Computed example of a mutant assay.
Amino acid sequence: MEFRYLVSFLALAEELHFGRAAAKLHLTQPSLSQQLQRLERKLGVMLVVRSSHEVRLTPAGEVFREHVQAIVEELDRATRAARATAEGRSGTVRVGYNLSAWRDVLPRVLSVMHERFPQVVVELSERRSGAQLAALREGDLDVAFAYSGAAATDLGQRRLMRVPIVALVGVRHPWAGRRRVDFAELAGQPCVLFAREQSPAMYDTIIATAEKLGIGLQVAHRVDDLGATAIVVATRPVVAFVSAHRGEHEAAAGIGSVAVPFAEPAPAVDLRAVWRVDDQPSTVQAFLACLDDACPTPAASG
């Protein structure tokens, strides 16, 4: 059954006049009559009764009209939804982020997205950088806001800001009252470190800084969970490494830890937006465009 026959039938059911319905459809009256006859033969029922005085629907035609109207409206909705998705105006974007992104970048991007693409759902997932980048490669995330070095050729990226790495210590630690410490003072200090896969860029920066200064880190504990790291620091005389944003967050939480900046040249990591270049649906393109407008220039270092 051809869809155009259904549209023609609806026009005739609305006008109840072959001449007006044909004009509305940009058809001749004979063409409209032929379409109606073919539709009735296909269905095996009479839909329209025509006399010299009137055109009216049969009882079967009335019922058929209700169902056809629903079909045409649903197809129209489906067409509009498909176009909206293709244009990036509808759909879902899965976004991973860390604390630095949430503090300084993501709220601005989400505000622009909501204004321009209110039908696009942004699914947010807070994860450490390593987990974000792994999920991105596996197709579980569309965009990652993570600490990252230079991305591979299959990943697009944009540098957003430089984030300092700070020391996290307990309130009773000798460093707790210091305004800043030299990284070289870590020689002989028991440290808390995480597995490299948790945040490769931060891990590599910490190790590279220690090697450059010719010191060996005394790793007393390996803890991957950030909350557990803060608890260990608050209860033991050890030094942990976190971003400046995370240090502020843990200090404000009041569980007994403080953040102490390193003296310049302080180690730091780049916060980047990262995405797959070979799989970029229109919703991701829309999100990245909003990122460009919300954050037109990289934030200042420090």
Score class of each variant (00 low, 15 high):
V242T: 07
S52V: 04
T229F: 07
L213I: 06
V55Y: 00
H114L: 13
Y203V: 13
I215H: 02
G61Y: 07
W275H: 08
T92G: 03
L36E: 03
G88I: 02
H221R: 13
A259Y: 09
L141C: 04
R178V: 08
L47T: 08
D140T: 07
A176C: 12
F3S: 10
S243P: 05
V68K: 00
E115V: 09
A81F: 07
Q35V: 10
S129M: 00
I206V: 15
A208E: 13
R180I: 02
E138T: 04
L6Y: 13
R94T: 11
R196E: 12
E250A: 04
P298Y: 13
T85F: 09
F145T: 00
R276G: 07
R222Q: 13
E123H: 02
A300G: 11
A230M: 01
S282R: 09
E73G: 00
V95F: 09
R4M: 10
V166N: 00
P190D: 09
T297A: 15
L43F: 10
V232S: 01
L136V: 01
E250S: 04
T153N: 12
G156V: 12
A268D: 04
A151K: 02
V238K: 01
K42F: 15
R276C: 09
G19K: 15
L133M: 04
I165D: 01
S90P: 00
E197P: 03
D292P: 10
E14R: 13
V260D: 02
A82Q: 14
A228S: 12
D154R: 04
R128F: 07
E264L: 12
V112Y: 01
A187M: 07
A78Y: 06
D278T: 05
A299M: 12
L39Y: 11
C295G: 02
R179T: 10
E40T: 08
V284E: 06
G227H: 09
Q37N: 14
M1S: 06
A78T: 11
G91Q: 08
A152E: 15
A11I: 07
R127T: 05
Q34K: 15
V219K: 00
A252H: 06
D142E: 05
E62I: 08
Q35K: 15
D104M: 03
G139S: 06
F3M: 14
M161V: 03
L25M: 14
R172L: 15
A253N: 09
S125K: 06
V169T: 09
E54D: 14
A21C: 08
